[in-house]
């Protein structure tokens, strides 16, 4: 475990906590894409299947359980408990356009043609695009609350920090995983436009508002 990896995981954890707290404290999920949250639930479920048969470390098991349970809780809060506040009119991204192609790609390009490996690969590909419904929602409404921006910043930073972790591991351990690296690059690039707006606007106390 290197510093980039640890910071990446903490950033990921922070994002999930920010989102849950925002929904719980304001009793509202306005401005949050339920479609993206469903995709993340699919991502964690298909990636962490090894939880039942492979023990890696207490840290690994603990984090997987947190990510899975937080993700299902978020989906529950959005579609059940605070359903009335859910912005479904703006959250119109068709998730099958992301799920089906990434699944086909995982069948074609993977490390090993086994069920667990194909599902792991699918989760890596799907995660790289899972934020699109959320970014689409922000672009449709033209703005995002500060707390939603902090969530997106923490979530985007996580894979960016993993990229640094992979650069480090390549040199220090002679280890690399091309599938994770390419998908991680795609994932981070998708956030670039948002990072720019976050740094130039939200950090200066302004609301994230897209230019008309």
């Amino acid at each position: 475990m290197n510093i980039f990896r640890l910071l990446g995981d903490l950033s990921h954890l922070l994002a999930i906590i920010i989102l849950l707290l925002k929904i719980w404290k304001t009793r509202s999920c306005a401005g949050i894409s339920g479609k993206s949250q469903i995709l993340f639930a699919i991502v964690y479920t298909t990636r962490y299947l090894d939880l039942v048969n492979t023990y890696i470390s207490a840290y690994n098991t603990f984090m997987k359980i947190i990510f899975l349970s937080a993700s299902y809780t978020t989906v529950y809060l959005m579609y059940m408990k605070f359903k009335a506040t859910y912005d479904h009119n703006h959250d119109t991204f068709r998730i099958e356009f992301l799920v089906l192609p990434t699944f086909v790609l995982a069948l074609l390009i993977n490390h090993e043609p086994s069920v667990v490996e194909v599902l792991w690969t699918f989760s890596i590909y799907l995660e790289s695009l899972a934020i699109l419904p959320q970014l689409f929602l922000v672009s449709k409404t033209g703005e995002a609350e500060s707390i939603t921006s902090h969530y997106l910043f923490a979530l985007g930073s996580y894979r960016g920090l993993y990229l640094l972790n992979w650069v480090y591991r390549y040199y220090a351990e002679d280890h690399y995983d091309l599938i994770a690296i390419v998908a991680g690059l795609v994932q981070t690039v998708l956030y670039c436009d948002f990072f720019y707006l976050y740094i130039t606007k939200v950090l200066k106390g302004k609301k994230l508002q897209l230019p008309a």
Binding site: R5, I56, N60, F67, W120, H175, D177
Partner: peptide, 10 residues
């Protein structure tokens, strides 16, 4: 086959 070391990542 995926390297076991990458299975440690989340």
């Amino acid at each position: 086959k995926r390297d076991t070391r990458s299975k440690d990542e989340l």
